[in-house]
Amino acid sequence: MTVEEVYQYLCELLGEDRILGLEAGARDPFVIVAPESIAVVADVLKNDSRLSFDHLCDLCGVDWRAVPERKVACQEPRVEVVYQLYSFTHRHRLTVKAKLPRWRDETEKTLPEIPTVSGVWAIADWHEREAYDLVGIRFIGHPDLRRILCAEDWVGHPLRKDYEFPLEYHGIRGR
């Protein structure tokens, strides 16, 4: 199935309030999904016999924020969670995206939240830990959400655009 056909099919199954849109003009066309229903959508994507996306190639977070050094302005500050899927049965690919606010409140203290898909694809367990560690996304219902690449007591999420490198870590000078 092409991405357009997958999008139409998903809309019929799950409705417009869960499947928010399709970006057909991108180099890899992607489907935008409402963050709170990602677990339901993932379950359909994997278990529906016409879709059967049994392989989660990649899951990562992208932080969008205006950065002064960049000459190009960012219009819409957000955090995206990007899922790359492949089906060994039908040999088709799909990119799914969920857009989250950068923080859950104004004070910029609490991380944005999205339901986990680790119950659908086992590898999502580690990928979500990495996205939590580096981008700072909290996956609700994850069995063991702790840092995976950075040290356990590390502060901050390095792939955030406004991340500040620590001046000191256990007596080691940062800069």
Binding site: C57, C60, V62, V72, Q84, L159
Partner: peptide, 21 residues
């Protein structure tokens, strides 16, 4: 195995995200 690269551009020479799976 399958090494994946995910690159996001925003019109500048430097990518917004360079992800290595």
């Amino acid at each position: 195995g399958a090494m994946g690269f995910y690159i996001v551009g925003d019109g500048s020479p430097i990518p917004v995200r360079a992800r290595a799976k």
